[in-house]
Amino acid sequence: TQVHVDGVTYTFSNPEEAKKFADEMAKRKGGTWEIKDGHIHVE
């Protein structure tokens, strides 16, 4: 599962880990995350 944050791609083999990471990054940025085309995007 790929997580895209500010133009950087992080790859996780476990989708649950990817979601936890996205959640943390979104909180830090004061933003949100969503799943697009099977990838997670942090806004």
Rank of each mutant, 00 (worst) to 15 (best):
E17L: 09
D6W: 04
V42F: 10
T32P: 04
V42H: 02
P15F: 15
D37R: 00
V5R: 01
H39P: 02
K36F: 13
G31C: 12
I40A: 02
E34M: 06
K19Q: 10
E16A: 09
G7F: 05
K29H: 15
E34L: 10
K36Q: 11
I40H: 01
V8E: 12
D6K: 04
W33C: 13
G30D: 07
D6H: 06
W33V: 15
V42K: 02
G30V: 01
Y10E: 03
K36E: 10
T11N: 11
A22K: 02
V5M: 11
G30A: 03
D23Q: 12
K29R: 13
N14G: 07
A22V: 03
A22F: 02
K20F: 09
E34F: 15
F21N: 00
E43N: 14
D37P: 00
M25Q: 11
M25G: 01
E43S: 14
G30C: 14
Q2R: 10
V5W: 04
T9P: 04
Q2Y: 13
T1R: 04
G30R: 04
T9M: 13
V8S: 08
I40Y: 13
G38Q: 04
D23K: 09
P15N: 09
E24C: 15
F21E: 00
E16H: 08
V8C: 15
Y10Q: 03
T32H: 15
T9K: 09
N14R: 04
G7P: 01
V3L: 03
V42D: 02
V42W: 04
M25E: 12
G7D: 10
T9W: 13
T1C: 14
R28T: 13
V42C: 04
H4V: 09
H39F: 07
K20S: 11
V5G: 03
G31A: 05
E17T: 09
Q2K: 13
Y10M: 04
Q2G: 04
R28Y: 10
A22Y: 03
F12M: 01
A18D: 00
D6A: 07
E17R: 05
I35Y: 13
E43L: 15
H4L: 06
G7V: 01
E17H: 09
K36D: 07
T11G: 05
G31L: 07
F12P: 01
M25C: 14
K27T: 09
H39A: 13
K20E: 12
T1D: 03
A22R: 01
Y10S: 03
V42N: 02
K19W: 11
E43G: 12
K36A: 10
Y10L: 06
T11Y: 14
V5Y: 09
G30Q: 05
S13Y: 11
V3I: 03
D37L: 04
D37C: 14
A22D: 00
K19G: 06
A22N: 01
K29L: 15
M25Y: 08
F12T: 00
E34A: 05
E17C: 15
V5F: 09
D23H: 07
V3Q: 00
G30Y: 02
A22G: 02
E43T: 15
A26C: 14
V5L: 08
D23W: 06
A26E: 02
D37H: 04
K29I: 15
K19R: 12
S13G: 10
T11M: 11
G7S: 06
Y10D: 01
D23V: 11
M25T: 08
V8W: 12
F21G: 00
A18W: 01
N14W: 06
K36N: 08
I35S: 07
G30E: 06
G7C: 15
K27Y: 08
H4M: 07
N14D: 14
E16T: 09
T1V: 12
T32C: 15
N14K: 06
E17I: 08
P15W: 15
E16L: 09
V42P: 02
G31V: 06
N14V: 07
E24D: 10
V8I: 12
K20W: 08
G38K: 03
H39Q: 13
A26F: 02
E16C: 13
A18R: 00
M25K: 04
T11W: 14
K19M: 14
V8R: 13
K20L: 12
V5D: 03
K27G: 07
I35T: 09
I35G: 06
V5A: 07
T11D: 08
K19A: 10
W33K: 06
H39I: 15
H39W: 06
H4C: 14
P15Y: 15
W33L: 13
G31I: 04
G38L: 04
G38S: 04
V5N: 03
Y10R: 04
I35F: 11
W33P: 06
P15Q: 12
K19D: 03
T9N: 06
M25I: 12
V42R: 01
E17K: 07
V8K: 13
I35P: 06
A18K: 00
H4T: 07
H4N: 05
I40C: 05
S13T: 11
S13C: 15
K36W: 09
D23G: 07
H41G: 03
K19F: 14
A18P: 00
K36S: 09
D37A: 04
K19Y: 14
I35K: 05
F12E: 01
H39C: 15
A22L: 03
H39D: 11
F21K: 00
D23Y: 08
M25L: 09
K20C: 15
A26K: 03
V42G: 02
Q2V: 13
M25N: 04
A26Q: 03
P15V: 14
K36T: 10
K27P: 03
K20N: 11
T9E: 08
H4K: 04
E24A: 10
W33I: 15
E43F: 15
F12S: 00
S13I: 10
E43H: 14
Y10W: 07
D37W: 05
V5H: 06
E17S: 10
I35N: 06
E34T: 08
H41I: 14
R28A: 14
E17P: 01
I35D: 10
T32L: 07
S13H: 10
P15S: 11
A26M: 04
G7Q: 05
K27A: 11
Q2L: 12
E16W: 09
D37M: 04
Q2A: 08
